[in-house]
Amino acid sequence: MNIFRLAGDMTHLASVLVLLLKIHTIKSCAGVSLKTQELYVIVFATRYLDIFTSFVSIYNSLMKLIFLGSSFSIVWYMRYHKAVHRTYDREQDTFRHWFLMLPCILLALLIHEKFTFFEVMWTFSLYLEAVAILPQLVLLQRTRNIDNLTGQYIFLLGGYRGFYILNWIYRYFTEPHYVHWITWISGLVQTLLYADFFYYYFLSWKNNKKLQLPA
């Protein structure tokens, strides 16, 4: 475990906590895409299929449980908690899950390291995670009215991806045989999707203004 990996995991954890804070204490999910959150549930459920069969460390297992539990509870809140559900921008959040999932399923069946059930599911989760933020970014663009917590949530998620890239670079130079093209390319694509958002986030931060995306 290097410092970049730890920083990435902690940023990821912080992003989930910010979102739970918004939903749990303010009882609002305004500006949050349920589609993206449901895609994350699928991402974690397909990636952590090995949670009971392969053990790396207590840290890893605990984090897997946290990410599974938090993503399920966020979706539960947005769907079934009356007060939270009322604040959901249902009409704006229209991205189709299958539009993202189907290409990822096909790609995972075609491009993978090993053709086994667990390996294809794991690869699918990488491809899906890369694009899972898209419904959220589309929703932001549509609502244009971005509150601080939602902005921070996406900023932290993007930060998590950035730290993972630094982690891969570090590991590539310090560990022999550390080469994972599928992970790297899908991770890079995922991080690039945040570039536009980051640009406007920093602009609003620099000018000390409320974050607004251009139409």
Partner: peptide, 10 residues
């Protein structure tokens, strides 16, 4: 086998 192939990332 490649040891670093193990999935130790989240």
């Amino acid at each position: 086998p490649n040891k670093s192939y193990e999935k130790d990332e989240l």
